[in-house]
C-alpha cells in the first residue's frame, strides 16, 4: 500500500475562502478537486504538498451551460457531467468524443475539467480539445479575475499561468454557426493516456473553411496547437487533398518524444493520420 507524507487539510467554503487559504498556506499548498492526478502523485511521493485545500464543495465552480453565444464550463465540472450534457454534445461533439476516451467511468465521475487543465500533463486530452476550439480560461486571484486564451494557458509540461495564489474558475467557448468538431485518439488500451490524439474544429461557409482549430496532444505540439496547418486550411475547400496536406503540415510541426507508448516516427505518423481523420469528420459535421 502506498501512503503519502503528512499534510494539512482544509475545506474551502467559497472561492474567496479558497483564495484566503491559498494565501495562508503559501506556494506549497495545492488545491484538490477530483484528486485523480494529485493523490496518486502524493502516494508515490512525487508530490508532497504542505496542505491540501479541498474545493469540491464550491458549487459556483460547477456551472455548465450556455450563456448567450458562449458555452461556460466551470472548473469543477466532472468529466462525466461534460460527457452527459446534451448541449455540449450538440455544439461541440469534440468534447464528448474526447471524454469518452478519457480514463474510465470511475475516474470520469470524480475527475474535473479544471483539474485536468491545471495538471498540464503534456498528454492531456482536454488540453487538445480546448486548444482546438480556442477556449478562454478565467482565472481568479487576490486582485480579481483575468481571462487568458487557452493557447497561452500552458507554459510547459506541468506548468500553467495560474499563479500559486490563484484559481482557475471556468472555461468559456464561443458557439458559432457552421462549425463541426471531432476528436481522434489512439491508446494502447482503454483508459490509457494517448499515444497521440488530435482534436479538430472547422467552420465552413459555402464549402470554404473560414475557421480552423487543431489541438494535438502527446506529440510535443507547442500549446497543443498546430497553427501552420490551421493557417493553410483557411479559405480552402475541405476536400481530401487539402485535409491530407494540413495533416502533413501538422505532423511536421510536432516534436514527439519516444517512450513506451511508441517511437518518434510512429507518433509523428499518428499525428498526421489522426489529424486527417479528425478534420474529415469535423468537416462533415460543419456541413450538416
Amino acid at each position: 500500500m502506498q501512503v503519502p507524507a503528512s499534510f494539512e487539510f482544509e475545506r474551502a467554503e467559497s472561492v474567496p475562502h479558497a483564495l484566503e487559504l491559498l494565501e495562508r498556506y503559501g506556494p506549497e499548498a495545492r488545491l484538490v478537486a477530483g484528486g485523480h492526478s494529485l493523490i496518486p502523485m502524493m502516494k508515490l511521493r512525487l508530490a508532497q504538498p504542505d496542505a491540501l485545500i479541498d474545493i469540491n464543495g464550491l458549487a459556483e465552480l460547477s456551472q455548465l451551460g450556455v450563456e448567450g453565444d458562449t458555452l461556460v464550463i466551470g472548473a469543477l465540472v466532472r468529466h462525466a457531467a461534460l460527457l452527459a450534457d446534451d448541449a455540449v454534445g450538440a455544439y461541440f461533439p469534440i468534447f464528448h468524443e474526447a471524454e469518452r476516451v478519457i480514463a474510465d467511468p470511475v475516474v470520469r465521475n470524480r475527475g474535473t475539467v479544471g483539474g485536468s487543465l491545471c495538471q498540464a500533463d503534456p498528454s492531456e486530452d482536454l488540453s487538445a480539445a480546448f486548444a482546438a476550439v480556442r477556449a478562454d480560461a478565467v482565472i481568479v486571484g487576490p486582485g480579481g479575475s483575468r481571462t487568458v486564451p487557452i493557447r497561452e494557458f500552458h507554459v510547459g509540461p506541468y506548468e500553467t499561468v495560474v499563479e500559486p495564489g490563484e484559481i482557475l474558475t471556468e472555461l468559456r467557448v464561443r458557439i458559432k454557426p457552421g462549425a463541426g468538431s471531432a476528436y481522434e485518439k489512439v491508446e494502447r488500451r482503454v483508459g490509457d493516456w494517448p499515444v497521440a490524439a488530435v482534436g479538430a474544429y472547422l467552420r465552413t461557409n459555402e464549402g470554404m473553411i473560414v475557421e480552423a482549430g487543431l489541438g494535438l496532444t502527446a506529440v510535443g505540439a507547442e500549446h497543443f496547437a498546430a497553427p501552420d496547418a490551421e493557417a493553410y486550411l483557411i479559405g480552402k475547400a475541405a476536400g481530401e487533398d487539402v485535409l491530407r496536406e494540413a495533416a502533413r503540415i501538422a505532423a511536421a510541426s510536432c516534436a514527439p518524444q519516444a517512450d513506451q507508448r511508441g517511437p518518434v516516427d510512429y507518433k509523428r505518423h499518428l499525428a498526421g493520420e489522426l489529424t486527417y481523420r479528425a478534420l474529415s469528420r469535423a468537416a462533415e459535421r460543419s456541413r450538416a
Binding site: V195, A258, Q260, R261, G262, P263, D265, Y266
Partner: peptide, 22 residues
C-alpha cells in the same frame, strides 16, 4: 503487439520489445 509495434512491423522495422523504445 501494441499499435506502435504493429505499425513498425508493417514498415519492416520491428520494435525490440524488451528494451526501451527509442
Amino acid at each position: 503487439l501494441t499499435p506502435a509495434g504493429v505499425w513498425r512491423a508493417m514498415q519492416g522495422n520491428p520494435i525490440r520489445t524488451d528494451l526501451a523504445i527509442s
